[in-house]
């Protein structure tokens, strides 16, 4: 025993600590906020250079400063309850109802297609076929069926957002492994219990992936609907500004829309973190 110890003591490690650090790029060590700010500044500088030296006409691309002033103008208009606020409100309603409808239909169809053999064999092929169609092309149909009001925009928004939710739900329901299935069988679980207590919880990560993709699509659907079917939303404001060659306005309106889209996406992500707390996200680029 003491022999062994003395051998261990003579090991080189006892003389010098071999503490060393892994090599990382200095850029990766900068805090995230600063990294993001850096990209933003570089982007705006490039943008400014392009406009300053007249590489692109002002009518096509406004300067960053013009856009900034217009952002403030639109912000003030919205904050003071100006004419843009009702337009924003309409687009928000379209997005909200569209997403609600997409969730209800997407989730129900997803469960039917993912859980029943009939759904998978007889319904799924049609859904795949419709999914491959350019959905925006349905906009005139929705206008013809539902009119120029908010309904046709809600329909297009929901139509676009439904498919990723169907696919996410159906794929998620297939995620259950054979051990889990066998375990539920040996416990004598009914089909309903197996669905509620095992398959659906297991499907949640993929359901949320579908919801996130859908949350992006719903925005695109609402705005496209307004472009193609009139209405009084934010999309219409963009269309009008563009026809007046008011590009700074177009830019600032798009930025406000993207804030709404980001908000919806962030909300879905937040709900996901609360309900799917047990699911591990993949590691980020560059490893742990």
């Amino acid at each position: 025993m003491s022999n062994l110890e003395s051998i261990a003591d003579r090991s080189p490690a006892a003389e010098d600590d071999t503490v060393w650090t892994e090599e990382t790029s200095w850029l990766d060590r900068v805090p995230r906020a600063i990294q993001m700010l850096f990209v933003f500044v570089v982007f705006v500088l490039l943008w400014d250079l392009v406009t300053r030296f007249g590489l692109v006409s002002r009518i096509i691309l406004p300067t960053p400063l013009e856009t900034f002033y217009d952002l403030i103008f639109v912000g003030k208009n919205l904050a003071s309850g100006g004419y843009m606020l009702p337009a924003l409100w309409i687009t928000l309603k379209e997005v909200f109802y569209g997403f609600l409808l997409a969730m209800a239909i997407g989730f129900s169809l997803g469960v039917i297609v993912g859980e029943t053999a009939f759904g998978e064999r007889a319904i799924m092929p049609y859904l795949v076929a419709i999914d491959t169609m350019p959905k925006v092309a349905f906009a005139p149909l929705f206008v013809a069926w539902l009119g120029f009001g908010i309904e046709s925009k809600v329909a297009l928004a929901a139509f676009i957002a439904t498919f990723p939710i169907i696919v996410g739900t159906a794929a998620g329901l297939h995620a259950a492994d054979s051990n889990s299935r066998n375990l539920f069988k040996t416990m004598g679980a009914s089909r309903w219990q197996t669905l509620l207590k095992m398959k659906l919880p297991m499907a949640l990560p993929q359901v949320f992936t579908g919801l996130k993709i859908g949350s992006v699509g719903v925005m695109a659907g609402a705005i496209t609907g307004e472009f193609l079917g009139g209405g009084k939303g934010f999309g219409e404001l963009i269309r009008t500004a563009a026809s007046q060659l008011n590009t700074p306005r177009v830019f600032s309106l798009i930025l406000y829309l993207s804030v709404i889209g980001l908000g919806l996406f962030a909300f879905v992500s937040w709900v996901q973190r609360r309900f799917v707390f047990w699911h591990k996200e993949r590691v980020s680029a560059g490893g742990e």
Partner: peptide, 15 residues
């Protein structure tokens, strides 16, 4: 009900 079963994996549900 009077059969208990154990698999190669533990099959615990993470939620």
């Amino acid at each position: 009900r009077d059969i208990g079963m154990m698999f190669q994996q533990a099959v615990l549900f993470p939620w």
